[in-house]
Measured scan of single mutants.
Amino acid sequence: MTYKLILNGKTLKGETTTEAVDAATAEKVFKQYANDNGSDGEWTYDDATKTFTVTE
């Protein structure tokens, strides 16, 4: 399945997607991506749209 990440950071904004077997796997990928790019904030997940959002 395709999962989407929306970044609403102070310095990093945008979207990216990943293919993953489940939401937990996608979350690990996205959290590593956000960490690698210095983005940290409040995470939410919408199962209906398969979208993670991180807001700083």
Rank of each mutant, 00 (worst) to 15 (best):
M1K: 11
M1Y: 15
M1L: 11
T2V: 13
T2K: 10
T2I: 14
T2L: 13
T2C: 13
T2N: 05
Y3E: 02
Y3I: 03
K4N: 04
K4F: 12
L5A: 02
L5V: 03
L5E: 03
L5F: 05
L5W: 02
I6E: 03
L7E: 01
L7D: 01
L7M: 12
L7A: 04
L7G: 02
L7S: 04
N8D: 08
N8H: 10
G9M: 14
G9P: 04
G9D: 04
G9T: 15
K10A: 11
K10G: 10
K10E: 08
K10P: 11
T11G: 14
T11D: 09
T11M: 10
T11C: 15
T11E: 09
T11N: 12
T11I: 11
T11F: 14
L12D: 07
L12C: 15
L12H: 13
L12S: 11
L12R: 10
K13C: 14
K13E: 05
K13V: 10
K13D: 05
K13P: 05
K13A: 07
G14P: 05
G14E: 10
G14K: 14
G14D: 09
G14I: 15
E15T: 12
E15F: 14
E15S: 10
E15Y: 14
E15D: 05
E15P: 05
T16R: 12
T16C: 15
T16M: 15
T16V: 15
T16K: 10
T16E: 05
T16D: 03
T17S: 10
T17H: 09
T17A: 06
T17M: 08
T17Q: 09
T17F: 13
T18D: 02
T18V: 14
T18Y: 10
T18K: 03
T18M: 09
T18C: 15
T18S: 04
T18R: 04
E19N: 12
E19Q: 14
E19L: 14
A20P: 01
A20K: 02
A20C: 07
A20T: 04
A20Y: 02
A20H: 02
A20V: 04
A20L: 01
V21P: 15
V21A: 12
V21C: 12
V21T: 10
D22K: 02
D22Y: 02
D22W: 02
A23I: 08
A23D: 04
A23E: 06
A23L: 08
A23Y: 13
A23K: 13
A23V: 11
A23Q: 10
A23H: 08
A24H: 08
A24P: 07
A24N: 07
A24F: 08
T25C: 08
T25K: 05
T25Q: 12
T25A: 14
T25H: 12
T25P: 01
T25G: 07
T25L: 06
A26Y: 01
A26F: 01
A26C: 01
A26N: 00
A26G: 01
A26I: 01
E27S: 06
E27R: 09
E27I: 07
E27Y: 15
E27A: 10
E27V: 05
K28M: 11
K28H: 07
K28P: 02
K28S: 08
V29F: 15
V29M: 09
V29L: 10
V29A: 07
V29T: 09
F30H: 01
F30N: 00
F30A: 00
F30S: 00
K31R: 15
K31Q: 07
K31W: 07
K31N: 03
K31E: 03
K31I: 07
Q32D: 06
Q32Y: 04
Q32P: 02
Q32F: 05
Q32H: 06
Q32R: 11
Q32W: 05
Q32V: 08
Y33F: 11
Y33R: 03
Y33S: 01
Y33Q: 03
Y33K: 03
A34L: 14
A34I: 12
A34V: 15
N35A: 15
N35E: 13
N35S: 14
N35P: 03
N35K: 15
D36R: 09
N37D: 04
N37H: 14
N37M: 15
N37A: 13
N37T: 09
N37C: 13
G38M: 12
G38D: 07
G38L: 12
S39L: 15
S39N: 11
S39T: 14
D40T: 14
D40N: 12
D40S: 13
D40C: 13
G41L: 12
G41V: 05
G41Q: 05
G41P: 03
G41A: 05
G41W: 15
G41H: 06
E42M: 11
E42P: 04
E42H: 11
E42L: 13
W43Y: 01
W43N: 00
W43Q: 01
W43E: 00
W43H: 01
W43P: 00
W43G: 00
T44L: 07
T44H: 12
T44N: 07
T44M: 07
Y45F: 05
Y45W: 03
Y45H: 01
Y45E: 00
D46L: 03
D46W: 03
D46F: 04
D46G: 01
D46R: 02
D46Q: 04
D46V: 04
D46Y: 04
D47G: 07
D47Q: 09
D47I: 08
D47H: 11
A48H: 09
A48G: 07
T49A: 05
T49F: 04
K50V: 02
K50T: 03
K50N: 06
K50D: 01
T51E: 03
T51L: 03
T51H: 01
F52M: 00
F52E: 00
F52Y: 05
F52N: 00
F52P: 00
F52L: 01
T53Q: 05
T53A: 04
T53F: 10
T53R: 06
T53I: 07
T53C: 06
V54W: 11
V54L: 13
V54R: 03
T55I: 08
T55L: 06
T55V: 08
T55C: 06
T55K: 06
E56M: 11
E56S: 11
